[in-house]
Nucleic acid binder design. Structure first.
Lengths: 192, 192
DNA sequence: ATTATTACTGAACGACCGTTCAGTTGTCAA
DNA sequence: TTGACAACTGAACGGTCGTTCAGTAATAAT
């Protein structure tokens, strides 16, 4: 046979790393460099195998594309986790596009304190805040009350806009002078 | 002056949409098509403006790159949300690469029930499960106990492996015959 | 009305792209 | 030992790429 045999899964990993670092797929010249080939054709044939395996895709003009960007979605937990054979047919979703609609207006903010713990937002969690969206009752908002920025639920009590913590140990905040909305929390992200 | 003047922010949105749909940035021919230009040069000059505005970047070989993939990270909530002027210098992070290390082994599972509510995992949340990772004490795991798949904290009581719910109303599960680990929960994602 | 400036068109350039092909080198099975 | 086969090398091809340049059309200021 030939010289070395590489695991195709490992090869696909190299492509994914390149895509993450560069934001695009490598050219055949770059693939050859990455794998230590001296010929583009060696890279070409490697890509053909990966396409056959379904790990890569090509578009009409031959440009490469990752078969699975993001994470695959499994319906419910009841079925257990899928095997390698089953997972090919599963839909794959990018967490960025799943959670964020307006990247230009969205920010990731680290949560301090436990004032929203009953809403499942713990200290150290990251909340996705969209700036400029109008807050509706019940929305969790980033707001500036009398000089301080806080993370609270926006509600109305007797016609007045108030900020309510999701923790019984915190009082309801009734803005005296100032109430500015920084943004609305559109999502929560936690990493263990 | 020339014929029409387009808002550069809107133009950048077109590029982002293309990148989301195709997984890569458009060529100048494709840009011309998307904006209704009959000449590649019109697209070229539009891109130059976007680069000047910092909305796009070019690499060494002239290929385009989105200036902000993913979401910008804001340190703490104390400072409030940044203005347009400040946000340019902020680091931008892809949620995919922030949360997921091994895309091939990671799955997104929708949570049913309230057994993990004290750990801040509510019904309807999505948990990121990495298959194959060895579970350590205190890890939240997807496990199969005596035939049923559940989401619980993995612990040891008197030398025996047990599954503990983060909810006082649920009992500790001591596996009778079978205990199979499907994967370890490496993150939580919630969308409002 | 004239001029300057901007928004384009259209053609051309070398460079690199994906692809193909002929040949070489190493490895395994018979 | 031999032959088949797979893993490569190296050169070549047309095509598309990013880029440049000369010119035209439309707006705005003078």
């Amino acid at each position: 046979m030939g010289r070395k045999t590489i695991d195709l899964k490992d090869a696909a990993e190299v492509f994914r790393d390149f895509y993450r670092a560069e934001g695009r797929m490598p050219s055949f010249t770059e693939i050859a460099e990455a794998f230590g080939y001296k010929s583009k054709n060696a890279a070409f044939e490697l890509v053909e195998k990966l396409v056959d395996e379904g790990l890569l895709t090509k578009d009409a003009r031959g440009r490469l594309r990752l078969a699975s960007v993001g994470v695959r979605v499994l319906g419910t937990i009841q079925a257990g986790l899928p095997t390698t054979a089953e997972q090919d047919q599963m839909e794959s979703v990018s967490l960025d596009s799943y959670l964020v609609e307006k990247p230009e207006e969205t920010f990731l903010v680290k949560v301090q304190g436990d004032s929203m713990i009953d809403a499942g937002i713990h200290e150290g969690d990251m909340v996705l805040v969209e700036r400029g969206r109008t807050a509706r009752e019940g929305d969790i908002v980033v707001a500036r009350v009398d000089g301080d920025w806080t993370l609270k639920t926006f509600e109305r009590r007797a016609g007045q806009a108030v900020l309510v913590a999701a923790n019984k140990r915190y009082p309801i905040i009734k803005p005296l002078n100032e109430l500015t909305f920084g943004g609305v929390v559109i999502g929560v992200v936690r990493k263990y």
